[in-house]
């Protein structure tokens, strides 16, 4: 099967580092390797103390009793520590696994849909050409006779319109499956948000929606890909605008910590049903009526944020709106 040439295969593992590193960062714990001394102590100290107890039994029973109590205490504390650390690691591993499966699934769906889009593009082009040719032939035939071909011409026009719709979708798919290397520049995030918000403002005012900006003026500059960030911000704001009803409210905020810069776009619209939360970033997933959304916007955002080495997440309670958070690392 021929494939788009500019598509590199997705790596199987997380692109942001080896899983062990991620696990360590996720749990805030160091790896067992770094703890080898502690581990040795953990296993060796109780038996040594126990031996001491045995030895002490021969001297005085009271000393032996005290020593035994201490040994038991130390063993219990140490066992508890080990247990909690183990369960912490297990939890982190599970969370990581889910995350990994999710991102692999997205990558697989993305690749599959780009493959299909590529394959379908050619037949679509031929259908468009043939429809045009047929319209031309009918035009010629119409000149020579009195028959009315209006209905046929109408139907051909509809074929053209629907083919254009298909083409639109395949192009969008191919476009966002294309991996663009990010170009890093110092970016004023507040200004980018402000610029994109101005673009949304007018449309928002038609719907009587308030677009509130809570942007600190001292936000540090971020080294990232400016047009990619603009695309993400604009897509998320548009998404929020579609989610709210007349009179709704959208709030865009940004903040920075030592490691990352976070942009949050929150709306008070219909929210996302719990069963849809997991699917929200899947390509083609949409809750809009057929023909009104391709279901590619959020999935594209996910791909773009991934390209910027960031993370996008969503929190929502049905009926209480949704909040999308984009977290971008300050050092890439």
């Amino acid at each position: 099967m021929p494939r788009p040439a500019n598509r590199a295969p997705e790596p199987a593992s997380d692109p942001h580092g080896d899983p062990k590193g991620i696990l360590a960062r996720a749990t805030g714990a160091r790896l067992w390797k770094d703890h080898s001394l502690l581990l040795w102590a953990h296993f060796l100290v109780p038996p040594v103390l126990a031996a001491l107890v045995v030895a002490a039994t021969f001297a005085t029973p009271i000393l032996a009793g005290i020593l035994a109590a201490i040994v038991l205490g130390i063993a219990a504390v140490s066992a508890r520590g080990l247990l909690s650390r183990l369960s912490q690691t297990e939890e982190a591993r599970l969370a990581l696994n889910t995350q990994l499966i999710q991102s692999q699934k997205l990558a697989a769906i993305g690749e599959l849909s780009a493959g299909i889009a590529h394959e379908i593009n050619n037949p679509i082009a031929i259908i468009a050409q043939e429809a045009e040719w047929a319209a031309h032939l009918i035009g010629e035939a119409e000149k020579g006779c009195s028959a009315d071909f209006a209905e046929v011409k109408d139907s051909l026009r509809e074929v053209r319109a629907q083919v254009d719709r298909c083409k639109n979708i395949t192009h969008k798919l191919l476009d966002f499956a294309r991996k663009r290397e990010p170009v890093l520049q110092d970016v004023d995030v507040v200004r980018i948000i402000e610029d994109m918000a101005r673009l949304v403002d007018k449309e928002a005012s038609y719907k009587n929606v308030t677009l509130v900006r809570s942007l600190p003026q001292d936000l540090p500059k971020l080294r990232t890909d400016a047009p990619l960030l603009r695309q993400v911000v604009l897509n998320l704001m548009t998404n929020a605008l579609h989610a709210v009803d007349t009179g709704g409210r959208i709030e865009v905020s940004a903040l920075a910590d030592d490691e990352a810069l976070e942009i949050c776009i929150k709306d008070n619209g219909c929210g996302i049903a719990p069963e849809n939360i997991d699917k929200i970033f899947n390509p083609f997933f949409t809750t809009k009526p057929p023909g009104q959304g391709t279901g590619l916007g959020l999935s594209m955002c996910h791909t773009l944020v991934d390209g910027m080495k960031g993370k996008i997440s969503v929190a929502s309670k049905p009926g209480q709106g949704a909040a999308f958070t984009v977290r971008l690392p300050r050092r890439v």
Partner: peptide, 21 residues
């Protein structure tokens, strides 16, 4: 001249660097 959100989205998605009103 006119803030068209749809055109803006399409422009950015088609690889425009920036948008000026």
């Amino acid at each position: 001249g006119h803030a068209s959100l749809e055109a803006g989205m399409q422009g950015m998605n088609m690889g425009a660097y920036d948008y000026v009103l």
